[in-house]
Design a protein around this nucleic acid. Structure first.
Lengths: 264, 264
DNA sequence: CGGTTCCTTGACGCATATCAATCTGTGTGG
DNA sequence: CCACACAGATTGATATGCGTCAAGGAACCG
């Protein structure tokens, strides 16, 4: 276990900024930079750093003081808690365009969670004090931040509910349904964005149980081929829908939709 | 199951305000109003309503549009999610001086959680639009809000971690330890603030399991008498400590402390 | 005193964790 | 190109811990 502080390759960014600001236009649901003034954006970027973090490196440790808000330019990050016995609970799995530690920098005290890189990742580190200052100046930034944090809160609530009230197969079905809606509701081919072991942990089950849950889904028209989930038809996952997902589902209410949320 | 919309007794508050503002000084850890300007406070209160909500009434339903931030003047509130089968998962249990729905009003869309009154409660309803407006004007208010939401996020993370990695008795021990620290670290008598059934659900277990978990704790020096938890000594709960609680514990590091967080 | 609600205790069954073996795909070196 | 090693995934057998069901007890209230 590495005791020394992490020291990833850090490049400061005189020329990087332009590449980035054009990059931010491409990524789908970037919330942090949405609609902020040119001024704020410039201010944010000039005060930030870009770092490359290699796979499995620990970016934030449990108990660390957190001085940055992390924006994922490219890569995958896992937010988790672990105890002395080595048991781990995954709080979140994040990808390009998402942020992390945005809530932690407002908590005061040390970080209650760890953050590790699932694969080689490129991160933008925005100093916490810059965020705190700019939030007061640019209301849009503050609003974005509140939306991001609130959305993460919502996800945590859903995750908890899933684990407490649903059986493994239902949990997995619910997860795949959310993937479908956010990825592309117009296909029957869904790609698992992370290793199955990781997703299993995120869903609060063991890899073996995850595998068996996948098998159960086959009986309701949800096939599997490696990291691809193939649906028999668009409505195979409707059984796992709840009022949250129904709201986000473009197909909700159309003929064929058999969401249980209707009767909830 | 009551189908009709909730319609609690609503009094508007020309004269109530003064009583309230002196009241807020007494409640222990009020975060929402901490350090906000007189101006903001007045603005907040004159635009808000006080309602009395009787026990078991549903204040916010899953799927409702939420138009208020709720401040608990007095009472107890349960935040939960439930599914069509009637299974319920408790996301939070709140008391005097705490707020709820503060994150929901920034999520956009409908509420992913329900809120019910555990007992007769007096609530301050602050319109969401007022909050959104004042947040931009008074940085202190925005900061308070961010702290509250972030703290709730932290609690959700801890709760999830507990349920996934800990056994029932450990979960309960961890919960009681947190009660001890926040209530009064200088006593060996801790009072359970809610019905055992409710706490059981919050901890993700059945009442029977909760009861058996209490029995297990007796073997490590944690006795029970109705709603009172009596410790053999100040350090009976140290076994359940983690780095989060260690940070908040005034006795951490003193002789007698045997926190596992030291070796984590 | 009888009724209700909440908690506790006991007996039982099942679902998931655990342990162990096999399989698949991938990358590496001869 | 094949042999080998390795990680991740799958499958099977077993065990155990929690949920479930059922009964009894304790406090509260009319």
């Amino acid at each position: 276990m590495p005791k020394k502080a992490l020291s990833p390759q850090i490049k400061s960014l005189p020329d990087y900024i332009r590449g980035l600001s054009s990059l931010t236009d491409n990524i789908k649901p970037i919330s942090l930079f949405d609609g902020v003034s040119e001024d704020t954006l410039k201010n944010l970027l000039t005060n930030s750093m870009v770092t490359i973090t290699e796979q499995d490196r620990e970016i934030v440790r449990q108990g660390d003081e957190v001085n940055y808000l992390y924006f994922i330019i490219e890569g995958s990050i896992r937010i988790l808690r672990s105890n002395p016995d080595g048991d781990e609970a995954t709080n979140n799995l994040l990808q390009d365009g998402e942020t992390f530690m945005e809530a932690v920098i407002f908590m005061g005290g040390m970080s209650p969670v760890r953050a590790t890189a699932i694969k080689n990742s490129k991160l933008l580190l925005i100093p916490a004090r810059v965020i705190r200052r700019l939030v007061l100046q640019d209301g849009q930034l503050g609003h974005n931040l509140l939306r991001i944090i609130s959305t993460h809160q919502k996800e945590a609530w859903q995750q908890l509910d899933s684990i407490v009230t649903k059986k493994p197969a239902e949990r997995l079905g619910y997860y795949v349904l959310k993937l479908l809606i956010e990825q592309s509701p117009d296909t029957v081919d869904i790609e698992l964005p992370f290793k199955k072991t990781l997703i299993a942990n995120y869903l609060g089950m063991k890899p073996e149980t995850f595998s068996r849950a996948l098998n159960k889904l086959k009986t309701v028209g949800v096939g599997v081929d490696h990291e691809h989930i193939i649906l028999r038809d668009f409505f195979s996952l409707c059984h796992f829908c709840d009022s949250d997902t129904a709201f986000a589902c473009p197909r909700h209410g159309t003929s064929g939709c058999s969401s249980r949320a209707c009767h909830g």
